[in-house]
Design a binder for these strands. Sequence first.
DNA 1: TCTTTTAGATATATCGTTATAGCATAAATA
DNA 2: TATTTATGCTATAACGATATATCTAAAAGA
Lengths: 334, 334
Amino acid sequence: MSVKPTLASVAKEAGVSIPTVSQVMRGTGRISEQTRKKVLQAAKKLHYVTDSRAAAMRSGEYHEVGFLINQLSNPFNAEVISGVVDLLDAEGYLVSVLDTRDDAARQSRHLDAFIRQRRGGLIWVPALQTDDDTLAMLAAQAVPTVSFMRPANAQMDYVGIRNAEATAMATRHLIELGHRHIAYLGGVGMNFVRKQRVEGYVHTLSAQGLGEGIVWQCPENKLAGLSAMQELMHKHPQVTAVVCNGDMVAIGACLALARDGLVAGHDMSVIGFDDIQDAIVATPPLTTMAISPKNLGMRLARVLLDRMRDPKAPATATEVSAKLVLRQTTGVPG
Amino acid sequence: MSVKPTLASVAKEAGVSIPTVSQVMRGTGRISEQTRKKVLQAAKKLHYVTDSRAAAMRSGEYHEVGFLINQLSNPFNAEVISGVVDLLDAEGYLVSVLDTRDDAARQSRHLDAFIRQRRGGLIWVPALQTDDDTLAMLAAQAVPTVSFMRPANAQMDYVGIRNAEATAMATRHLIELGHRHIAYLGGVGMNFVRKQRVEGYVHTLSAQGLGEGIVWQCPENKLAGLSAMQELMHKHPQVTAVVCNGDMVAIGACLALARDGLVAGHDMSVIGFDDIQDAIVATPPLTTMAISPKNLGMRLARVLLDRMRDPKAPATATEVSAKLVLRQTTGVPG
DNA sequence: TCTTTTAGATATATCGTTATAGCATAAATA
DNA sequence: TATTTATGCTATAACGATATATCTAAAAGA
């Protein structure tokens, strides 16, 4: 294997100076057609590729952004990422994804490494337990940053979901179907998103005089949803409907029903959140609060682009609404 | 927002020279305890974080690696990634994930951007239609690279799966159960992985005098698996068992059966590949050729580490075996 | 013919680090 | 006391690129 090609080696190969090569590569300055060809040929021969870190160091222009996500294995997130990448890719940015797994220590390490790389911008879902030191560090670095799902503070752009509105809508839907004992299932701890969602659920219940509700925890995956639903049914047999924190949990809940020979939408109503691809092929197909993850991702990307172009503009907060998508897991109480 | 802190600003704050700060930050050289404290305090106050690009440029040491994956939304890949990250994170490397979506043009753009960043290492699943130019470019850059799933060429390390062995095992299992009309379902085009898997299937069939088999294409997701299975059953009603290219397709196939009121493992045997988490909670639970994705990821990481430590060592090829995990989607012909 | 303009290239400084060598001052040795 | 050695810090050059200024030769104008 040869050594990495640099401007210097290309310049030598083409018999010109280093700045000349630099100008040819970027299409700036006054260069004769003859020299241009000579340089391009040499660059091609040596497989020259610009060292963007060295370039960025001098020019101050960064075309790399990072995306710190809290759970890479969640298909909803994967689709958001694809939306972000689609738009930023078209604008000439490289998007690198890092998985924090919602662990503050891991996030801190990743964030440190990210800052060390001096990328152009950052999108992140602040991990649970994110401490003030981390926020102070991030602010000190002056990196254009957008918070996703969970707002970090008022000085930082934020893109998220109207969570309370969505769960209120879901709960209302179940009440209108005639349900009186509705539980909330999913999510762990009282993080921002879950707090909002639970609030929307609780407020709607109490506004209708249906008590304080039943709130049940579980991690965001199918297996956890399955066993949580089993426990819930055992402890609270009067429940006839559940609002779920996410589709994975909702699908898990439906699996629990199926194991007991029950049918979702008939014996028990289940409503999800996210509208992941699995929701459509689930049996029965899942009624859910739909977010278009791809659009959400593109919105995120646009906010980040705006921030990078104008670092001094006031911070923005963007919230998108969820839409109730009726499929077959909700119905009148059986 | 303040300007980004540098060694120079910390040096000024602490009243010492730039090299002194550099030495304190890295714990090298001879520094008095007094100066050390002074510098650390100044660094903390300004939230100084090393610019790793500038550092790497001088020292030649890179602690960032990239992972170009062909499908981020596939949970199997997500688990492989988590294995890679776990090990490399512990060794002080930052892993950035890029999604090529198996598109050669997108891969080419990402690879270019990656090379421009001069990272320390690369793991990639060469996209379908990867051209020789791309390989030549990569070779010219002298970046430690490991190919995953699909070998790029003999000069490059490779970590993958014993595909033919696995599908042969799967096919043999079905034959032993008494099946005589076994189809192969899933995958698109004749890429390396699919070719090997189909070969394992075809050889086993013909060795048993069961003809050439039926090979059916479809993308690696549940919905595609569902409709492909419907078509397959319509065109080839004699088929009683299918070997699938992946669990997503297998689960989709089971959904197709359920829609027709059929039961996998009884009316039709289905065997998957990967053993993703969904395989366990599928109804019925999926029989599959299991790979431990996390271990695979850690293996990958170790090969990359070895390569980075010794760039001149001969290229290695590592293949892991799949294990038949019996659940409920295979049984005697109904 | 002499000056001015312009095209086409290059010299030089710089970005934020690290590596190497060097230079004081204090301590240890002869 | 003179010399060596160790300690603690700094000057300088480099990494690979870009920005700015400069320089030469040819073309255009006076």
